[in-house]
Nucleic acid binder design. Structure first.
Lengths: 191, 191
DNA sequence: ATCCATACCAACCGATCGGTCAGTGCGATT
DNA sequence: AATCGCACTGACCGATCGGTTGGTATGGAT
């Protein structure tokens, strides 16, 4: 069953809900189709379980993010580095969530996993809020959290494209690029 | 035929390539299935035509962006406002491109529309490069272009989510939020 | 030894998929 | 008047879809 969930995550991440048949999931997991339906009543149920798992992984990994330093710059850098590492560690779950974001706009906001997403976002905001005295007037921790997560996620999403756009202007490679926008953000938000 | 392309764009944007059947496209366009295959040899060909059109729309709309003011702040603000307006004007094409970004990573980078995307990105970089003397050391126009497009696109993508996350921290509403990060970016990039 | 829940499977169901084909109606060309 | 190209259609094809059914293998509790 764990095997089925694992293979389903990879396949759904790659091809989307409609692009994957239960039979494909079954074959990839080394079982037959009927067996998948024994563990999950419908295709939709399997999909939601996979999605739920992906959200939980974010929360569990965030638990392991401990930071000794308390300054804004250190907090923000550590956050971005952790998030980046998480995205690389769980590319399938990440792409699954990104897929869901692109899907019908209201679907995710009203789905069962939304409270999890909301809770995850709250935790990130709280982490930045502890150094909010270093923020310029009018810059809220929530804004900074949104920008950081957005840039990292969208950067992950367009990674392949960036590789072929590097010759335009002088767009840096990914790790250097990240260092650049962290530096830029810090200049922009500190008082 | 224009009708078919239009309805196909809306349906593909909403449900993705695998989530739409040719029959659905045909019914939405008021013709029969075989007629769709008369105009487009395969489902894939129809999809690529729709995608191509979406990229061209970006270029055509960018043509209409004229800016009298030459300062960096004015350029960047005008660029963001134009891009935002474009996204709202062509939500289906936008979601189609975003979908493609989330799909198999290399597919878009190697597809026929990539040169168009590349050219569009180059034009945005060029627009910012004309005020590059106002940029801080180590900040390239390409970096700024990437950040601006990323934040606007990802903001569009997560618009529905933001609405339900506003109660977290003090995340502002969309227009105000945009003003905030434009201001933040300007603080971060100007010397 | 019996019982029972669970994991698993081959075969099957009606519906729908992408795509084909033979043919119809029609305006422009000759 | 005959012909041609083109938009268009209903009927059809084999394959595959999500899901069901009836049944087997297994292992632990009684």
């Amino acid at each position: 069953m764990t095997r089925i969930l694992l293979e389903a995550e990879a396949l759904f991440a790659e091809h989307g809900f409609d692009g994957v048949s239960i039979n494909e999931v079954a074959c990839a997991s080394g079982v037959c189709k009927a067996n998948v339906f024994h563990h999950f009543a419908t295709k939709q149920e399997l999909y939601e379980r996979v999605l739920w798992q992906a959200c939980e992984n974010f929360s569990r990994s965030f638990d392991r993010l401990q930071l000794a330093e308390t300054g804004l710059a250190a907090r923000l850098t550590a956050l971005v580095e952790w998030h980046e590492a998480f995205l690389r560690e769980r590319p399938n779950g990440t792409r699954l969530i990104l897929r869901e974001l692109t899907g019908s706009p209201t679907a995710l906001a009203q789905s069962a996993v939304f409270p999890l997403i909301r809770s995850n976002f709250e935790r990130v905001v709280a982490l930045l809020a502890e150094a909010s005295d270093e923020l310029r007037e009018g810059i809220s921790p929530a804004l900074v959290a949104k920008l950081v997560l957005s840039l990292n996620l969208f950067g992950f999403q367009t990674e392949q494209l960036d590789g072929r756009l590097m010759t335009v202007g002088s767009l840096a490679a990914r790790p250097e690029l990240r260092r650049q926008w962290i530096d830029l953000l810090l200049h922009g938000i500190q008082r």
